[in-house]
Design a protein around this nucleic acid. Structure first.
Length: 443
DNA sequence: CGCATTTGACCAGCGC
DNA sequence: GCGCTGGTCAAATGCG
């Protein structure tokens, strides 16, 4: 009797244990699958990121050489070579595509710049897409849009016209994105945050409403790089440095700079796509919400006010959103406050996933060819199941805190993004803590 | 001496 | 048309 009781009890326990074991094994298998899936996603994001950067540089170089040839040919306009470039990736090359028109048909191409540009500055003139696109900002969007709609029919080859039609929406988006600015607010005692690029100051102005002068810089890492930035201290809190980036680099970037460049590019693209009514825009909006909402903190403010659509990345972690420059039309993401846990440095590694995903989604939804082979259902995976979002949100909140506490936040961003490419998480932590990018080159 | 920064002037856009 | 403002240029200046 007793033996039978003990025996049956043990049988029960054994059965339960086996059951639990089976459950655990199933869970392990499930996690393995999930792990593989995440790795695949990570690889995809990384490859898209790299491809996008390379594509950007290639297009820019093509565009530069093309413009030089055109100059030699005596301004032979609209002969059909340029459009392909800014159809594919308008972020950089669209400016060049318009440059042809601008240099002739728009006064901006030849107005004040030509006044002072000596022949020796021709190279700069050719390549200074940023200047041109920058000038377009104020000179009229409508005109730019007209060019994009009219000139193809006039001078482009028919096959390219067809391509244009299919990508017209994209092109318009890109044109708008080119005009977008990305503003980064960060606390820093330095005159300029370290973002990995080389800048040359070319001007300084006292802007109205701010006793602090606004400094103008242009990128000097490559001749004719159109990227410019404005640096100004916040009038209300002079410890806050407001850095506004415009344009896209036409050269390979060091890891530290790549983080900022891709981030600003991503943000700009997301902003513009999110403001569109097209399906792309809606999808991107959804993505933006999914990706940025978990970030927490008052991280991103998107201003769609004219004339410049501006994405503001607020890394000052100021709990008072009123400190953000209020603009008439603003879409703000009401992130919950970030937990003050700077010690959670590992969480920083998750931040680039947001931006990496941003790039992935950009490339996908913006019609860039490099991600067209992705199956649609992967989109759902990219958006992350809820089981990953919550821990991600917490970690990202901590990451935000870490970066916000660091004046050289871009170094942290760079380290984080570098980590996703090179998988060097240790460097992330080191770089985040040290706010230095010295080890980034090794990654 | 070469390069970067400073600074006054110039120009275009915009509002009145 | 005029004045204000933002953005850019380029000569002058400073620095290593």
């Amino acid at each position: 009797m007793v033996d039978d009781g003990i025996s049956s009890n043990m049988e029960d326990k054994r059965a339960k244990s086996e059951l639990q074991l089976a459950v655990l094994q199933a869970e392990v298998e499930r996690m393995k699958v999930e792990n593989l899936r995440l790795k695949g996603m990570l690889n995809q994001v990384t490859s898209n990121y790299n491809a996008l950067q390379m594509h950007l540089v290639t297009l820019t170089q093509d565009q530069k050489s093309h413009h030089k040839n055109e100059q030699h040919d005596g301004k032979n306009k609209n002969n059909g070579m340029v459009p392909r470039q800014f159809m594919d990736l308008g972020l950089v090359a669209a400016a060049a595509g318009d440059t042809d028109d601008l240099s002739l048909s728009t006064s901006e191409g030849g107005r004040s710049r030509d006044r002072s540009r000596s022949p020796g500055n021709n190279v700069e003139n050719n390549n200074e897409d940023g200047t041109l696109m920058f000038d377009q900002d104020k000179k009229g969007f409508a005109r730019g849009a007209d060019h994009r709609e009219d000139s193809p029919g006039q001078g482009w080859a028919s096959n390219k016209v067809a391509r244009l039609n299919s990508a017209k929406t994209i092109d318009q988006t890109e044109a708008t994105i080119r005009k977008a600015r990305v503003s980064v607010r960060a606390r820093s005692e330095d005159a300029m945050i370290s973002d990995g690029c080389q800048w040359r100051k070319y001007g300084q102005k006292l802007a109205k409403g701010n006793p602090c002068p606004r400094a103008y810089y242009r990128c000097t890492m490559a001749a004719g790089c159109p990227v410019r930035k404005q640096v100004q201290r916040c009038a209300e809190d002079r410890t806050i440095l407001i850095t506004t980036y415009e344009g896209n680099h036409n050269h390979p970037l060091p890891p530290a700079a790549m983080a900022m460049a891709s981030t600003t590019s991503s943000a700009a693209r997301m902003l513009l796509s999110g403001s569109m009514s097209s399906a792309d825009g809606l999808l991107n909006s959804n993505f933006l919400t999914r990706s940025l909402l978990p970030c927490s903190s008052n991280l991103a403010t998107i201003s769609a006010s004219a004339p410049f659509p501006t994405v503001t990345l607020d890394l000052t972690q100021n709990p008072n959103p009123l400190q953000l420059p209020k603009q008439p039309t603003q879409f703000q993401f009401p992130f919950p406050n970030a937990p003050q846990d700077p010690a959670n440095a590992s969480a920083t590694a998750l931040l680039p996933q947001i931006f990496g995903q941003a790039l992935y989604n950009q490339s996908k939804f913006s019609g860039l060819q490099m991600s067209q082979d992705m199956e649609p259902h992967r989109l759902g995976q990219q958006s992350q199941p809820a089981s990953q979002q919550n821990p991600l949100a917490d970690s990202l909140a901590a990451a935000t805190a870490v970066i916000a506490a660091d004046p050289n936040f871009t170094a942290a961003l760079a380290a984080a993004i570098t980590s996703i490419i090179g998988g060097a998480h240790q460097n992330i932590i080191n770089s985040t803590n040290n706010a230095q990018t010295t080890s980034l080159g090794e990654t």
